[in-house]
Amino acid sequence: MQNEIIIAGFGGQGVLFAGQLLAYAAMDEGKEVTWIPSYGPEMRGGTANCTVVIADEEIGSPLVRNPKAVLVMNLPSLDKYEPLVKEGGVLVLNSSMVPRGVARKDITVVLVPANEIAEELGDRRMANMVMLGGLLAHLEVLPVKAIEKALKDHLPARHQKLLPANIEAIQRGSKF
């Protein structure tokens, strides 16, 4: 069993961290996992993405053309990844950031107003956690509890005070 997840958006939206959190949770659950960022001469506001592969056996390629799931945080990422999601896969869309709908009918589309929810909870920067919640509710890859535990275990000490709000963000997202 293998799941591939691409998380894509603007630099600064927490795209890479959301992927790392998935990877930590997968590792702690005893799974094989790879996390690979798009890296390049990029800056805040440019596009960023990462690919996370979670599997039960030794992982071959850390990159895939057709991922099982995509978390889309902005319009350029929707344009790029909508055609690539595997048939029957999941596309989680940050509807606060993307002014258009999704045309594909052969995938599960999850619309999450992630920025609004994150702002309600006190900080727009938690939109990535809301989106992760949305993914976990529709892709059987890891239990929400595993992500919450990973957040607890791997959030730097200086950010631990933000833990309850982040966990709430994941839970709010998982209701979509």
Partner: peptide, 10 residues
């Protein structure tokens, strides 16, 4: 290669 330098794995 650069991808192995940049990727994370357990």
């Amino acid at each position: 290669d650069g991808s192995l330098g940049q990727m994370m794995e357990p």
